[in-house]
């Protein structure tokens, strides 16, 4: 609970804490300790940024330049050809139509999965926080436990189930799977959020004659925009980055971008085109990175929500 509530109550800890007599001893002037501190932080920042830099540089070089063997050097001659090839013509196994196929597949998987999983989980969270019924806590506990079970344990039976439902190897199949496996964390997220809202609001709405759906749609949802944003960010990045479910349940023609990226890089025959590989990698990482950089604290909140104890 500590982590999540901290994030909620202190939207801007860096600024608010600046005035309080808190944290370590404030060191105002430049002194050796302070220089050390920033040095360490900068070195760490370099380690974290290095791969991004290398990807970028490599993707803008021609193959001959890459063979010179300096991955850190900026390109002498900038070329966007690898990007074009990665997007349009790179070979993923049998087909050579580039990553764009995977991109659109990922879009077609991600959007409905995000909508489905959030719709179901938000209603679940609402039922669990405001309309507890006999056994509801038991189901919730199993659900949270379930999120720790390795997916491998449930894979084969799920293949059977989806096959019986006639959705194995289809978009619906992979959307179904994402909805199921998104349920624990999202339900937890929504349940905790709704439980933290004043209970009297819910009571007032009942006195005002709103029913189960009326309270949810007219009172709770309109005042819960932040948590929906957090959930969307969590799900968009999570589902976009998925590999395992895509490769098993989506079917070859619906392979998401991650699967196609892996195929481009790891199953090509002949000359390895590192520049194309890196361009493809950047393209695949672009969507979650964009979400991450634009969402800022909402992403952090979603991440930290994983550490919340029910």
């Amino acid at each position: 609970m500590t982590v999540e509530s901290y994030e909620i109550t202190r939207a801007k800890p860096s600024k608010s804490s600046a005035k309080e007599p808190s944290g370590a001893k404030p060191l105002r002037r430049i002194n050796p300790t302070r220089i050390m501190l920033y040095s360490v932080l900068l070195v760490a920042a370099v380690y974290y940024l290095l791969p991004l830099y290398v990807m970028m540089m490599t993707s803008l070089k021609g193959l001959p330049e890459i063979r010179l063997g300096n991955i850190f050097a900026p390109p002498m001659e900038v070329t966007f050809a690898p990007w074009a090839k990665a997007w349009d013509t790179a070979c993923t196994g049998l087909y050579c139509e580039g990553l764009k196929v995977g991109f659109w597949n990922s879009v077609r998987i991600t959007i409905p999965s995000v909508i489905m999983s959030i719709t179901i989980a938000s209603v679940n969270g609402y039922a669990l926080s405001n309309w507890k019924f006999k056994g509801s806590e038991v189901f919730f506990t199993i659900l949270i436990f379930g999120s720790f079970i390795p997916y491998q344990v449930m894979l084969y039976p799920l293949v059977i189930v989806t096959r019986e439902l006639g959705i194995f190897g289809s978009l619906q199949g992979v959307i179904f799977i994402h909805t199921i496996f998104g349920m624990p964390i999202l339900t937890l997220l929504f349940r905790n959020y709704f439980a933290a809202l004043p209970e009297e609001l819910f009571k007032a709405a009942r006195v005002d004659g709103a029913g189960f759906w009326g309270i949810f749609l007219k009172v709770l949802v309109p005042m819960s925009a932040p948590i929906f944003v957090v959930a969307v960010i969590l799900q968009v990045t999570g589902i976009w980055n998925d590999f395992l479910f895509g490769v098993i349940f989506a079917g070859v023609k619906n392979f998401p971008m991650t699967v196609q990226l892996n195929n481009i890089v790891n199953t090509t025959q002949g000359v390895k085109e590192y520049n194309v590989n890196m361009a493809a990698t950047l393209l695949t990482g672009a969507v979650p990175l964009a979400v991450y950089f634009f969402s800022g604290r909402f992403f952090v909140r979603g991440v930290a929500a994983g550490a919340v104890k029910g």
Binding site: L41, A44, A45, Y48, L49, L50, P51, L52, V54, M55, T58, I66, R67, G69, I71, T237, W240, N241, D242, F243, T258, L261, N262, V265, N266, Y274, N277, M278, T281, T284, G285, P288, L289, V291, Y292, F293, G296, F299, V300, V303
Partner: peptide
Amino acid sequence: FRTIYLYPFALSFIVTGIVWQWILNPSLG
């Protein structure tokens, strides 16, 4: 700083794996 340290967490393991495969590539990395 926080943004820099956390951004890799937003990436797919596939992306991470391929980048580091390239950086650690013995013949060109």
